[in-house]
Simulated scan of single mutants.
Amino acid sequence: MRLRHWLIIGALSVVAFFAVLLTGLDDFDLTEFESIEIAFLSDEQTLRGTLLRPNEVFDPPIAVIVHGDGPQDRFSDGGYLPLFHVLLDAGIGVFTWDKPGIGKSGGNWLDQSMPDRSAEAITALQIIRDHDDLSSSRVGFLGFSQAGWVIPAATHEVTPAFAVLIGPAVNWQEQGAYFTRKRLEAEGATTDEIEATIAADARRDARIFAEEYVPSREDLRGMTPDRFAFVARNHQTDATDDIAAMTGPVLAVWGADDLNVDAETDAAR
């Protein structure tokens, strides 16, 4: 009887495990929703993405996704899928596309400035607004991290139905200093050591990002030349003025323990 008891418990545990596993996998499956491939031109490059529409919702609101940093495809290598599933279940559609040079999109995302990215986001939003059957939909932005430099500027040219910013950055150089500070604190560095390192980094940046300067291999610090050029092009980005002039309703959310973005300072701004 005792053996039978444990066998039953074991069988139920296995069933429960696979039920939880399969439920979690469902979050990564969007095949139940309508999916439409959409291509659009930005900076003379053809970008390709996917419009996902919720089931049985007439003129659903649509979130135009603005990626953070890095070579992101439309689904962020699958990382976006659970979030998109939640939005679609709530009756909210999604439009997302491959960054330039990633997936099926032409170009090279490392050739972009933040104004280039803002222009791209504006075009994407307008494409969705003009799409068949969505003329009455509320279309807005949903972006992450680096989108903090992209979306505020975009709202100067077009007023979105909403702008949602998740962990947005405000000042590029201050963000870099914050990341360095957190890394050194985790390594046990003293306050004086941290301040000295940040000051040295600022002096180095002023030197290597100066006009006409040709970086050495040491200056690249493991970056490819394309990545270095991207940083040099954008390292002075500051969204403070763009934030002050944003149009449309805004929701900005930070994680208090973010190691990349200074949540407290940026939320105050």
Rank of each mutant, 00 (worst) to 15 (best):
E174K: 13
S118E: 00
A200R: 12
A119H: 12
K99G: 04
D132W: 07
W172F: 15
R129W: 06
D192C: 03
P115G: 05
D205W: 10
T159Y: 09
D111V: 00
G148K: 09
F141S: 01
E157A: 13
A153E: 15
W149C: 01
D111R: 06
P152H: 11
P168K: 08
L165I: 04
K99S: 06
T191R: 15
L125T: 03
L165Y: 09
D192A: 15
I194V: 10
E187R: 08
L165N: 06
V150S: 00
G176A: 12
R138E: 12
D116G: 09
L184R: 09
D201L: 13
I166G: 04
I151V: 13
A119Y: 03
I166N: 09
R203N: 15
F141M: 04
R138T: 10
A154K: 04
D116C: 02
R129Q: 14
A119R: 10
W149R: 06
D205C: 05
S135L: 13
K182D: 04
P152E: 09
P152C: 09
G107K: 00
I127V: 15
R138S: 12
W172L: 01
T180H: 07
P115A: 03
E195C: 02
E195S: 12
W109H: 10
P115I: 02
M114W: 11
T190L: 09
A153F: 10
R117T: 00
T159M: 15
D201N: 15
K182H: 07
N108H: 14
A154E: 02
T197I: 07
T197F: 14
E120K: 01
T180K: 14
P152V: 09
G101A: 08
H131T: 11
I151D: 05
D133L: 12
I127H: 04
S105L: 00
P115V: 00
L165M: 14
D130H: 12
F141G: 01
F162A: 08
L125Q: 03
I128P: 02
A147P: 01
W149S: 01
L125E: 04
A154C: 09
A169I: 07
T191C: 01
A147R: 01
R204C: 10
F179P: 00
V139S: 06
T190V: 06
G176E: 15
T197G: 02
I102C: 02
H131N: 10
D133F: 10
I102G: 01
D130K: 13
V139P: 05
L125D: 02
A177E: 13
W109A: 04
P168I: 10
F179L: 14
L184K: 07
G143N: 05
A177Y: 10
